[in-house]
Design a protein around this nucleic acid. Sequence first.
DNA 1: GACATTATGTTACACTATAACAACTTTTTC
DNA 2: GAAAAAGTTGTTATAGTGTAACATAATGTC
Lengths: 167, 167
Amino acid sequence: MSHSRDTDAFSPHDHRRCIRTAIAEAERICLEHNSRLTPQRQAVLELIWSSHKPVGAYALLEQLRELGHNGQPPTVYRALDFLLQHGLIHRIESLNAYTGCRHPGEHHTGQFLICSQCQQVAELDDPSLGSRIEDSAARHGFVADSQVIEIRGTCPQCQQQDSHEPR
Amino acid sequence: MSHSRDTDAFSPHDHRRCIRTAIAEAERICLEHNSRLTPQRQAVLELIWSSHKPVGAYALLEQLRELGHNGQPPTVYRALDFLLQHGLIHRIESLNAYTGCRHPGEHHTGQFLICSQCQQVAELDDPSLGSRIEDSAARHGFVADSQVIEIRGTCPQCQQQDSHEPR
DNA sequence: GACATTATGTTACACTATAACAACTTTTTC
DNA sequence: GAAAAAGTTGTTATAGTGTAACATAATGTC
Ligand SMILES: [Zn+2]
Ligand SMILES: [Zn+2]
Ligand SMILES: [Zn+2]
Ligand SMILES: [Zn+2]
């Protein structure tokens, strides 16, 4: 019953649907785990999902304050920890920033396409790529637990714009 | 004439040879680029190569001070920038730490095996994995410039130890 | 030697993340 | 339902990572 369609984050789409789906999935997963999606945690999750650009913890903190929530670093880091542990968001290591997970619930390490131009991030979920990497590690006798895959480049939209505005 | 043998960082080996080779290669590359491998830069490179465990900038700073060098953060970050730009070291994003590059000179993004137990890092150089990732991105219309591939797990040595000390 | 270029010294600060403990809420147990 | 336990949030302070900006010194070019 997973609704996670494979619409690319880069392609134009009804993003409110992304948000709604993310919240709904979060509620479902928290129910399953007997965890509580408190107002603060939900607020952070919604802020993260406000776009497909990863957000830093302190940017989130700023926005939380504007929403009238309490504003100290531990507040936001606790919410982030919770969301990370429940697989609702990912941390982008090369950006020190956080982005919503598109396939929550299915334990997985993310594979990310990061556009250097528009800052947007799309999450790949290519299991065969994952196992290809495991194989590569295994060939050196290494047992892989988790992977950080972050690919920087140019997204389709930004490529088009580039070709329209040469020079 | 490249001496970069494919000895794994994890396997026991004459590590002084790693260091010697690294410095020699660094000198060669700097000569090629008309860049100067100053004493400070070389000191940082040697410290990084003192083991196969990635080192943080401030740990380096500490060690530099013990060697009598000037000790302010910019000093070490400048050296790191220089070494990064010349492809002599890599930054491990998920550790905020730096490690020596085993194939300097050949423009490449590193692929790293990081042992959670002994903290040592081995650098893979699997071009076919690189292109496999590019393909995966291309399938989404994404043009990849660079990749961050960091695989966490257990190295062969630590696996053996684990099996000797069960429980 | 005068000049431009490159490298280093120095101070101060910005950004990212956590430790430690107190107060409050919700859930569980009796 | 009161008491205890577990979980969540508030609060203060601090640790860890990285840069900006400007001064000084060393090196290379003519
Ligand atoms: Zn969306
Ligand atoms: Zn883009
Ligand atoms: Zn070695
Ligand atoms: Zn190991």
